[in-house]
Design a protein around this nucleic acid. Structure first.
Lengths: 336, 336
DNA sequence: AGTAGCAGTCGAGTCTACCGACTGCTAGTT
DNA sequence: AACTAGCAGTCGGTAGACTCGACTGCTACT
């Protein structure tokens, strides 16, 4: 084995051992657990080299090495390809999606919890960007005297609804409904107000109300973040030094909007794994994010991801998000 | 001042000081901050008496006293009556409810966050029990070829909807919708299956589907827990000794069902404040819960509450939940 | 290039001593 | 009888000294 190649193997070993034990990895620990055919002294030399190159770091002089963010990055880019999920977990995912039968919101929420269970980390699920989803049909329905329901069916099978007050009904409501449909159908729910009129002032008011309500609601729902397994963040305390750090993480997850835009941003740049200092957000300096988009009918529908300490099992994490995102996309196909 | 009366004042002072400082309270700290007209030695005597009676405890011999759960209980029962909210907070609540304009789910969720901000503790909002809400009207609407929407309007103005697949449409759908309405109207959404038929097999299938979907969904929604300010739990770490305790609390809040039934149970017994060991749930041994029901049109609609360490400002907590529950009930009045 | 072996470094754990913050009690006062 | 002054006693917490042992880095050798 060539020297450079061996150094890569040493790096790999350090990452794997550190993920397993959470302790700085000594040169001997590597020669003990791997069969490199060289002595610990040689591994030590490789390690100093790797440290010079920025892949490893030493907490203090008389300690083993831990990976730097750059070290994790190399590991992710070179040693995590095509890992499948263990059978047990693969079955858990299949079972979940076979038996679940819920409205979209609940499904996404429970998906985040599934992912959290699988990976033992906090999990997030982000819905599709409102701008990206087309309207399949829209209508207004009288549900009570004085109350009208605006119903919009989206390209991904989701149904959004909003309650409105209006005395318009019967024939006139039918015309308003037609105008509502033609105003939205085929477009997105981005907040535009197509100037449509029916020649009926009261119905026009209703129409404007309905379009406004539906678009703002869509924005709100699409920016919603489903978070599962927050308790894992507290359990991972050792990684996130202080309890104040944990509190700030939880706060950020509650904010939602920060995380949602971060996730969209990462994915727009084709990034699946963001490690520690690669994150621009301060709170995430000690965290890594592993993402996988899910697609419905070939179109990007949203993202699932997990949020854990940089010291995480990236291979398993990648396998888990891949499996879940794929199954989720499949389930969403025939409309919820 | 009579001796027994003074002891009560001492207890009160210990609770208030301990809530403020989080440190065991010394006899001198009390004579310094209050004007009891007696020396610290006398306070010491009162404290030993209060300890014998179970209201105070000593972490170790050479330390001040801290209140026991029983001590907090006495404090809550005798010294927290009729506290109003400070003007700043009162305005914050009014502003929130004046400007907010959202669908029910979002409103409840944001209410929980408001309450968390007000009290600096985690907050929960529980919706009404499904068994307690009457159906105002129900109908089935075709939204696309092959897709039917079941819409149910509830007594509190909430609108539940569920998407179904069925090819029944036109005239036949109208009849099914009528049957759907008469099957549910005036009753609750408790999972019963009134045997209704329309004499049209396919429509009957749709009808059964719709009733089933709507009742299960209602159960699911009504058992939903809106949690705000979970990050406070991490920030209160000092109170919940270990990080493992925090993790278990977060887990429980994610479970939802435990907390929902606990809250309903407490309120059924007319309990507004449950302190530490008074909670049957193990995870809550170091927590207190402060609750206030909110009413819509005179009927019990749900509960708001906060969850914090036993060492909390009960007077402020009670004032906050009272103010929020009252305003929330008022806002829900004209239907969402 | 690779290795054996040893000196050097530093964190973590243990022990001791000490300080200071309380209380409980006793003796004395009003 | 109620209260108080004052003092002895208790115990947690902190700082310093010491040891142990887990590593590394280096040098000399193969």
């Amino acid at each position: 084995m060539e020297a450079a190649e061996r150094r890569a193997t040493v790096l790999r070993a350090v990452v794997e051992e550190y993920v397993r034990t959470a302790q700085p990895v000594a040169s001997q620990a590597i020669t003990d657990s791997r069969d490199l055919g060289v002595s610990s002294a040689t591994v030590r030399n490789d390690m100093t080299q790797l440290e010079r190159e920025g892949f490893l770091a030493q907490p203090h002089t008389s300690a083993g090495r831990i990976p730097t963010d750059q070290g994790y990055r190399y590991f992710v880019d070179h040693f995590t390809s095509a890992g499948g999920l263990p059978v047990g977990q693969r079955r858990a995912v299949a079972d979940f999606f076979a038996t679940t039968h819920r409205a979209l919101e609940d499904l996404l929420h429970e998906t985040s919890q599934l992912l959290a269970r699988l990976t033992s980390h906090a999990a997030v699920v982000v819905g599709p960007d409102a701008d990206a989803v087309r309207v399949r049909s829209a209508q207004l329905v009288a549900i009570e005297p004085g109350t009208v329901l605006a119903v919009v069916v989206l390209g991904n099978g989701t149904v959004e609804r909003e309650v409105l007050r209006s005395t318009v009904d019967g024939e006139r409501l039918g015309r308003a409904s037609g105008a509502f449909d033609s105003a939205l159908k085929g477009g997105t729910l981005a907040p535009t107000t197509p100037a449509t009129t029916t020649g009926d002032p009261e119905a026009d008011v209703l129409l404007a109300d309905a379009i406004h309500a539906v678009t703002t609601r869509a924005r709100h729902v699409s920016d919603h973040l489903y978070v599962g397994g927050v308790s894992r963040l507290a359990a991972e305390q050792d990684a996130f030094a202080t309890t104040a750090t944990t509190a700030r993480l939880l706060e950020m997850l509650e904010e939602q909007v920060v995380v949602v835009s971060l996730v969209r941003d990462l994915l727009d740049h084709g990034v699946n794994v963001s490690i520690g200092s690669e994150n621009d957000v301060d709170e995430l300096r000690d965290c890594s994010i592993v993402l996988a988009p899910y697609q419905v009918e070939g179109a990007l529908a949203g993202t699932v991801g997990i949020l854990g300490p940089t010291r995480m099992d990236y291979a398993q994490a990648l396998a888990a998000v891949a499996a879940v995102s794929q199954q989720l996309g499949r389930l969403l196909l025939p409309s919820a």
